[in-house]
């Protein structure tokens, strides 16, 4: 049963990340070069916040499979994050590459802690 829930969560999370990325790029306006990967940053931070909320709420095992493993897992990504960081570094934007790694980690960590605090803390 959990397998099916993980698959459903993944089938929702991945398109959500794709649409988030599209929306963020569109927001930057046509013709504006897409330099800093804000779309992936937004999806990763939002998914980490949701995972923190679920951790604090200590949800049931099926809910965890659907929302944490499936939805949050697929809404967030490490592969696109590292490829975009590589592209920044390879195009000479070393500072932005380092900033992306550091900002993503700090935002993700902060989002997990904030989410968990909001719904009952890590002990919850």
């Amino acid at each position: 049963m959990n397998w099916l829930l993980v698959a459903i969560g993944g089938a929702v999370g991945a398109p959500l990340r794709y649409l988030t990325d599209r929306a963020v790029q569109a927001h930057q306006g046509p013709g504006v070069p897409y330099v800093f990967p804000w779309g992936t940053f937004a999806a990763n931070t939002a998914g980490s916040l949701l995972l923190g909320l679920l951790t604090g709420a200590a949800v049931s095992s099926p809910a965890h499979a659907l929302l944490a493993t499936g939805l949050c897992g697929a809404l967030t990504t490490y592969s696109t994050f590292s490829y975009e960081t590589l592209r920044l570094a390879e195009t000479g934007r070393t500072f932005l590459a380092g900033a992306n790694v550091l900002a993503s980690l700090l935002a993700g960590l902060g989002a997990v802690f904030l989410g968990a605090e909001l719904t009952g803390g890590f002990g919850g």
Partner: peptide, 20 residues
């Protein structure tokens, strides 16, 4: 890329692992 590898890898579980 967006689907299989994006769904396979995860940033949220990574961040939660560090905070845990």
């Amino acid at each position: 890329g967006v689907g299989v590898l994006g769904g396979f890898t995860t940033f949220s579980t990574y961040a939660a692992g560090v905070s845990d």
